[in-house]
Structure formats: C-alpha cells, structure tokens
Design a protein around this nucleic acid. Structure first.
Lengths: 336, 336
DNA sequence: CAACGTTGTTCCAACGATGTAAACAAGTGC
DNA sequence: GCACTTGTTTACATCGTTGGAACAACGTTG
C-alpha cells in the first residue's frame, strides 16, 4: 500500500493538516513537529497523490503535446525539447500522435479536457478552422507551425516565407538556373508558405518559373522525396537544384539522384528544411534551413504558462522564432 | 467554466448519481430520465473530470515511458509505437527523458508514484540494481533492453548476443578478415551482450580477436561513431569491416570513412543495429539488425496491462522478441 | 391485501489533498 | 487581569466522482 497524509499524520502524532503544511513548506510549524513529520515522511516513503492534489488545486500538472508522428525526426527532436522545457515548469508531458489525419487530430483535440491537462501544444496538419470549436473549452492552446486557417489561437513558428526564400536565394546565388521545389501540398499551411517563398526568390533572382519544377508530396517522408525527385529527373530539362520542404524529402531526393548517378552538388544541389540531426551526417551533408527548435519549444511552453496564469483574456499571440541557413556539402561540396 | 455532474443533474432535474449512472452505462435508468440526462449532457458539453474519477477508482489512465532521449531515432520510433499500442488500451502516454544519466533515471523512477501512472515502461541505461529499490512501490514496471543487472522485473528485448553474432557473421561470410566493433561501453548492459556476440562470431569464423579493433563509445550518437571510426582508421592495420552497436554510430562511422576517401563497402563494410528509418535511406543504405519494434511496444504494453489486472504475483517475465538482418548496400554494394 | 421481488432513484460516505477559519497557546502591553 | 498580538495547530468543508445502502414506487403472487 501507499502511504497517505493520514498515515504520516498518525505516525507523527499530529494532524493531517500539519503534515500537509510541512509538505508544502508552510512557515509556522514548530521545529519539533517538523522534525517528527519529516521522519514520518521518510519512514513511510510518502509521495503526494497527484490526482487528489490536483483535484483540490484545479491543476493537473500535465501538458499535452500533439504531433503527427513521433518517428519523424523533426518531431522527435522537438518533443524532446518540449519535454525539457516543460520539466522546468514542473509539467509532465503527455504525447499524442495523429498520423496527421484530420479525424485523429479532431479526436485528440476533443479529448483534451481541462481536467486532463493544464494546456496543450499542438502541431496540426489537417485541421480546419471549424474543428477548433470542438475543443474542450478552457484549455490554453498553443499552435506550432503555420495555421492552415485563421484561428484566434497562440501560435509559434518561424517566418516560413522568408526561410524558403533564403534557401532558394542561396541556390540562385550559386548560379543554379533550374531550381525545383518538392513538397507542394494542398492541405498543409506550411507548404503554401514555403512555396510562396520559393516563388519570391525565383522572381527576385530573375529566374523563370515553371509548374513542371514544382513537385507535390503527399506526406513528408523520405519515400515521398525519392518519388518526387525521380519524377523531376525524368523531365526533358531536369533541374540543377532542388529545394525540399523538409529534410526527409531532401534525404529521399538525394537517394533518388544518387541512384541515377548524379553527383551532388555538382549536377544537382539540394537544400532541405528543419536541420534535423540526420542532415548534418548524411552523405553529402545537407544544406538546410535551421529553425531554432529549442526556442520554439521554450516559447510554446512559456505561452501556455502565461495564459494559465493570467486570468484576463490576452489577445492571441503570434510569435516568430529565429532561423538560419546551415550551409553544408549538398550545395557547396566538400570543404577542403 | 466547465460543467460538472452537478450542473448536468440540476439541468436535467435528477440527482447527481443518476447522471453518473447514465454516463457509466448503468442499465436501470428510466428512458425518460435517460433522455433528459443525455440532453443535458450534450447541452453542457460535459466531460468527466479525470482526476476525480481516478481518485475514486484508483486508476489514472496514464502510462509512463522513460527513454534516454526522444531525439534519438530509435527511441522516437519506439515511443510512437508504444503510444499507438497504449491508445488501444485507452491509455495516454507520459514521456520522460533522462539523457541516460543515472541520476535522472533514478529521479524519474522515483517520481512515478502509483497515483501518477498505472504502469511504466522504462528503457534505462545507467541504472544499477539498487536503484530499483527507490521505485515507488506498486507501479507495474516493464524494462526494455537488456538489464545491466539482475532485477526481478518484467523485461522485453531481442536476443542481443545472437543478433550481434548474426551481424558479424554476415560480415565474416563476405570474406572480411579484420572486423572492428564500435560501441563498447562499461555502463550499458546491451554493449556487453553485443560485444559477446561479436566475439562469438569471430571465434566461430576462426578470425583473430584484437582489442585494438574494439572501439568504445561514450554515447551512441553519430558523433561518437565518427570519432571511433576515425580512430580505427588510424591503426597501422585498419579494419575492412565494422559492426556498430547502433545505427547512429554506423552513420557516423560511414561519414568518417567517406571523409577519408574510403569506398563503402569495397574498402570498408558497415553493419548497424536498430534499423531506424534513416538507415534505409543513407548513402549507402545501411545493413542493420532489425528488431521488431512494433512487437516490443505491443509486448511491453501487454505486460503492463496483465500485471495490473492480475492481483496475484506473477513471476517476472523475460520475453524475447524477434529480429532480422536487413542486408543493404553498406555490406553488399549497390543492387544492379 | 400483505409480503415480496423488481426496478429506479436518491442519499451518504469516501478517495487524498488543501484552503479557511476557528481554536488554542504563549507572550506583550497597559 | 484583560485585551491584544503572534505563532501554531486542528476541525471541517470542499474539489468531482462513484460504490453501496437506503428508499420509493411498482406490479406480482400466494
């Protein structure tokens, strides 16, 4: 059996409340009693019943994190950072994954009662505006990544348009003329933004735009990148560079290119997006957009906390976190 | 505010318990009352207070998963599978990570009161036998991976010795003579087992053993693999093959080899361990031991459930899950 | 029509912790 | 000796839920 406050109190010969006071660091407890209580606590190995405590306090001590797939390196890395940031605020993190389907995302959002978690950090992919109505009221929510739609909810992301523009600008500055993009997708908010950045950069560099060079990707897995790249390489005039909307697509694209005997970056330069750890060690190492993932995690947790603490309505925040371009071998070749 | 049973009861004009009965599917509720309660439930958007319910029922609905780092692909993939398996048993998964330090692992284990979670699945790296005494009593615990030590706890893993032997046997069968190993580590149970398998295979193939060819790795990150490989390649007689104790080490080793102009597998064959998704897309694609991660996750969740449900003491189970050798380019070259 | 079982509902206590306020003890000042 | 602080402890109600006992209403049966 597990010791409760009552057990400890009996053992120490004081009231339950006094034990509670000791546990919670209440100042006015006589030294003698404090000592006895502490002994009893140690003897019984008392640990507070989180459920009961939270029932009383109206907090749960849990934070939910909703991601599409934990096996995707970006989300694995991000989740780790969120957990770390949350631990510092005494929160435990509950992770749900949705496979990026709208139905699962709705269901997850709906199950997040305020009794279950104090707040939630969500990274939706397919949700529509109306789905947010289904959300259990009263749970502070922070969204990561781009809105698909306009929803009055806190939101943390990098400037996707600028980031994409930076990536493509880098390719253009290297003298690439036929720059392709992989990752177009109707259902993802980020895809539209990154595509816009891609187009901006081409326009600015005075390069022609061609729909042939924009390859869609249903999911953002390595396989999708390989398929898209294979398709691009069959064009009569194949690209000499490609901007992939995430690192996994880029890894897949590299493989497809390598399998066809292309040299990277000589024949084909590749830029990814996310700066997952994998990208620094791929062969060749991948040039990629590096969002400050730790900042994203910290900011998101902070936003949740702030919204919980302040009783009055805050206007929804829209916070942009920094990013940088990590230049590696896939665009500039092996450093000598 | 959030609706409670009381609110619903008032609205429906019945007692709290009747509403509770409806919510919990108690059979004997008059149709008329049931209808009114259901209307009231819908109108208020009632969701049960998980904390209170569990306080009463003595269950929490949470399962803890402790891993060293979520950003390590193997654990990201595994965590995803555990979440999926747990969802099917109506459990939400709480993830804690420890960076693989003994102190953090102890602390995490200690914080898992039975009020917090119904059970825990842990993947420790540095824990010693005595640390398990610190565990809050009464929480069913399942360990993944090898024990460092003998502890009477449920345990799910593949046969590490056999798996390592299989991997190294594969290298030997390809005619490699100087087969190195990367990943030796005093503190990891798995390291010892994989090393034993490595030695078994060498012995069986009649190959000489040399301590020079066994490279330690503090952590199991890509960087450690690269450093170890660099070291091995500086030997007067460098290896012609290397067995890495996980995929990340192998990825790092590949990079170090490639940077020194070695061709893989012609000059150096490499085998990894874990079959992370990354390994199928690396250049060259990595030959690796493929544990059935889904089986591990399912088995672990099942074990926890079984231990919760049965009141009597079950003997600690020791379950081995299947694995296979995934042969790819890093040992046999590009398929034509 | 009394006794009984069946069905449906309500009341009460309890899970374990904590906030509130009251009770108690020991000084202090007048 | 009394009111008044100041410090210290306790009793009690409460958070939202559910199990069990008690109770009420009903039709059946002997």
């Amino acid at each position: 059996m597990v010791a409760t406050l009552k057990d400890v109190a009996t053992l120490a010969g004081v009231s339950v409340k006094t034990v509670s006071n000791v546990v919670n660091g209440y100042a006015f407890v006589k030294a003698e009693n404090r000592r006895r209580v502490e002994e009893a606590l140690a003897a019984t190995g008392y640990r507070p019943n989180v459920g009961a405590r939270n029932l009383r306090r109206g907090r749960t001590g849990f934070l939910a994190l909703m991601v599409p797939e934990l096996s995707i390196p970006y989300f694995g890395e991000l989740a780790g950072l969120v957990i770390t940031a949350a631990q510092q605020q005494d929160w435990s993190v509950l992770i749900e994954h949705t496979q990026g389907t709208r139905e699962r995302e709705r269901a997850t959002l709906g199950s997040l009662g305020p009794h279950m978690v104090d707040g939630a950090i969500v990274s939706p992919e397919a949700l529509e505006a109306e789905d947010f109505a289904a959300l259990g009221t009263g749970v502070p929510l922070v969204m990561l990544g781009e809105h698909a739609v306009d929803v009055p909810i806190d939101h943390v992301a990098i400037d996707n348009v600028l980031a994409a523009k930076t990536a493509v600008g880098h390719l253009a500055s290297l003298g690439r003329r036929r720059i392709a993009a992989i990752g177009q997708n109707q259902h993802r908010g980020t895809a539209a933004l990154r595509l816009a950045g891609y187009r901006d950069a081409l326009a600015e560099a005075g390069l022609p735009q061609s729909d042939d060079l924009v390859a869609p990707a249903r999911n953002y897995h390595r396989r999708d990148g390989a398929e898209a790249m294979a398709h691009l390489l069959e064009l009569p005039e194949p690209p000499d560079a490609v901007f992939c909307f995430n690192d996994l697509l880029a890894i897949g694209a590299m493989r497809a290119a390598a399998e066809r005997g292309l040299r990277i970056p000589a024949d084909l330069a590749i830029v990814g997006f996310d700066n997952t750890e994998e990208s620094a060690y791929s062969l060749p190492a991948l040039t990629t957009i590096a969002p400050d993932k730790a900042a994203i995690a910290r900011t998101a947790v902070d936003l949740v906390r702030r919204r919980i603490e302040s009783t009055d309505q805050l206007a929804p925040q829209d916070i942009q976190t920094p990013f940088s371009l990590e230049v590696r071998e896939s665009t500039v070749g092996r450093a000598t």
